[in-house]
Design a protein around this nucleic acid. Sequence first.
DNA 1: GTCTATAATATGATAGAC
DNA 2: GTCTATCATATTATAGAC
Lengths: 237, 237
Amino acid sequence: MTGRRAPRGRPRLPPEENATRERLLDTAQRLFAERGFSQVTLRELTAAAGTNLASVNYYFGSRDELLHALMRRAARAVHGKRTQLLEEAQRHHGTGKAQLRRILYALLEPAIVSEPGRRTDFLFGALLARAHADGRDELLDLLERQTTHLDPFAEALQRALPDLPREEIYWRLHFVLNLEHAVQTELKRLHYLSKGLCDIEDRRAIVDRIVEFALPGLLAPPAITDRPHRTAATRAS
Amino acid sequence: MTGRRAPRGRPRLPPEENATRERLLDTAQRLFAERGFSQVTLRELTAAAGTNLASVNYYFGSRDELLHALMRRAARAVHGKRTQLLEEAQRHHGTGKAQLRRILYALLEPAIVSEPGRRTDFLFGALLARAHADGRDELLDLLERQTTHLDPFAEALQRALPDLPREEIYWRLHFVLNLEHAVQTELKRLHYLSKGLCDIEDRRAIVDRIVEFALPGLLAPPAITDRPHRTAATRAS
DNA sequence: GTCTATAATATGATAGAC
DNA sequence: GTCTATCATATTATAGAC
């Protein structure tokens, strides 16, 4: 009838704004981000969402399809926010370090710090990390192909750093995006290592630190690439 | 009898050097790193190792204890190698950038690039990432408390960067350690983003790039920390 | 649309023969 | 020490009453 591949007896009425459906997505997003995909069963999830066990299958068809829907929704939100912040940054017509800093915040904040209202957005970074380590290769491949929203960032970086070869631009963009995980991962190790000296609770402050750490690496002149690898072995000999 | 908490009928004879036991560890390490803990069943694991289904329980007591033994072994190998490389670096009595570079390689290479012989070491970074996303919180807490091998690195960085407050040393060390994941994670995104321009296969070359990217951030003067957060919102207004 | 009961399946663990 | 057969359990998915 509908032309969809829905098995049978799937939701008939509203497009995306069903309360139960949204509640399932929100709850799943939080639980998956907190504990990993494999650790959350349908029973826990539906209990936490205040629905019944069958609701996930009713609305999404399967646990995996819920996961996919959730990641698509989260990715869309973060990508949209990044794009919007970059456009605002571009309007400054700034140059040099100040402009680079705006680009970095546009890139990093949306996946890390939540807006008032959209309280679950900032979990996207955590979700991505989960997807990686959970071995959801099909899902990851899907997500990692969605690079179009990053193209304007590469362009913006290239404009701010005209002397850098394009390849170098991409690598540095990759490193900056990876530093995003520094807000999610191994923070406890930092806590223990610094004997409590470092405050690991204030996410905004960590974003500030990441940006200041990354800036000099972005601004550095291109590295000489056509040299033999510097390995521990060769250096030690 | 033995005083161990082994349930009953556990291996009697050699301490750590049983061929089957080691084969199980090696195979599990590879499979877990490749696909995540939750994705590998005992049946797959024992089949790949060429043993029978009961062997994991015989040698380790449970699937989880195998995982713990494996992570302990991998952590010990990587931490030992790091310590050894740092000591070699210290013997140079070098200063400035060159010495910093040696410290960075000592930190990054052991978890990323395998030595001839010890072919599974380099998977430790991947294993750590899996542990994170798989929500093995007890295991992670165990691992993240093992920071003593990093103390000499903090000292070495402090000597090379005497003007940096201790807190800043720890944060930058944290960021460098996090960049390690840039060799494991989201490399395919970089591949798609750069339309194949970036070679994501050569791990040694990526370590070189990470080191050159991180160096300027390490060398930068301490950031002014007592300022209000620079958020996208405040900057846009 | 919601919910209960249950089917179908896969897993970790173990007993006991060899 | 190795292996097979099996248990107990937990999971996703679904049929069908309301």
